[in-house]
Computed example of a mutant assay.
Amino acid sequence: MLNTIEYTVTAIVCLISAIVIQRIFSKERLRQADPKGVEGIKWFGLAIFVWGLGALVNLILVSGFKWTPTNKVLIYFGVLISLANSLFIILSLPSIEHQKKPGILVRLAQRFSIREFVSLFCGVLGMIAFVFVASSYGNEEISNNFIWLIDIPISILVAISLLFELNKAFVARQMKFMYLPTFVLFILIVIAVTHRIIPQDKALQFIDQKFWSVLGSITAISFKFLFILLFSILLYSWKFLSEKEQQQSLAQQLTLENEQLKKTIEQFELANESHLDTIKNLKVEVKDLRQTAKVELSDRQKEVLGYLAHYGKDKSYTEIAQEMHISTDGLQTHIHQIKKILNISGAGGKEQLIEFAKTHDFLQYFQSGEDA
């Protein structure tokens, strides 16, 4: 009766949990979440699923086909389910994120690819299992508890690794209060393993048979429930932190884009000011050009500017007057009139006239002495 209850409860809870976890896995994969975390969800779901599958098969064989729980085929199947569960738990351990150094079992799983590790796990334990099955099948003198020796070392090793990895993860998430549940999980696994390996006739020398059976069923169910609970808490804390990190990343990205936008606006403002200055200067130049275009000079004044453009600062006004065969006073009169027309005053008037003459190509009005 206790076995039937154990199988029924385990099958219902584990299979429903596996379906829920599978849906979470599908959603997280579509959301393109952290691949490492998503893979961990997958293996965690498979570990729960094989528990439920094993319990369902046992329930069908025990209740439907009236097999006894001590049937060696059922024991072999139970060992297979337990080994598969251990394999999936090991594969899920690397996804448990923390800042500390991972355990030996985790580093071993990370050293190989998933296919290589599964092949290695199945190959080594397959050979060991073959030896155990070959030596125990058909041999009534060998206790069924002997067969569980295949799984016991692996289960203990996985339980220890799970204890340390969960504690490291909960510390990283500032959830030290989860130390106690993880330790209780470890104790329950040890009790369940001990219940499997100790022969019942030996245990009954010290403990009542009913209590021994109840203890086995309760620990078998309890550690599975606690395992699901702890991993669910870890899963949702990971999901919460992942979403929080995404929000922080989005906020940082928006802040960065905002700063870049501000810089771009500043650059546009500087460019706009530069363009405004350029436009202002162009307006001034256009104004000057218009004023220059309105300047009307006589032929003689143009000739004076031509001589200035040609000789520049090399000759004085007197020398230029001689070259033009006019008096110095006459040249000065022309210079004065040109300055008045061009609105040139103050010191440096000659330099301004020379620059104006060269800029506006008055050199064409220069006539050398030979031409004259």
Rank of each mutant, 00 (worst) to 15 (best):
K27Q: 09
M127T: 02
L120C: 06
G64M: 13
Q209V: 08
I221G: 09
E259L: 00
T194H: 06
V9T: 14
G216Y: 07
V158D: 01
W67G: 05
F77Y: 14
N167P: 10
K339W: 07
S95R: 12
Q322Y: 09
L157P: 02
Q267W: 03
L282E: 02
S249C: 08
P199H: 06
I81S: 14
Y179H: 09
K262Y: 00
L308T: 01
S143N: 08
G45D: 04
Q110F: 09
R107I: 09
G64E: 11
I152G: 00
F177L: 14
I16P: 05
L80E: 09
K66C: 10
V295I: 15
W51S: 12
S327I: 03
E259N: 01
A251F: 01
K168M: 13
N58Y: 06
F211N: 05
G40L: 08
S237A: 11
S135H: 04
S136P: 03
T219M: 09
Q209L: 09
E243S: 07
E269F: 01
W212G: 03
V171A: 15
T10Y: 04
S82C: 07
S249K: 12
Q22Y: 14
L59D: 06
E273T: 14
V50W: 12
I191E: 02
I16T: 13
S155H: 05
I154L: 12
K340F: 10
N58T: 08
F240K: 12
Q246N: 13
S222W: 10
T318F: 03
T328A: 09
I21W: 08
A271D: 07
T70D: 11
V184K: 07
E370Q: 12
V284A: 05
A251H: 00
A372M: 08
Q332N: 14
I197Y: 04
G103Q: 07
N144G: 15
F88D: 06
Q22L: 13
Q248D: 05
L241S: 09
V193F: 00
L256H: 01
S232P: 06
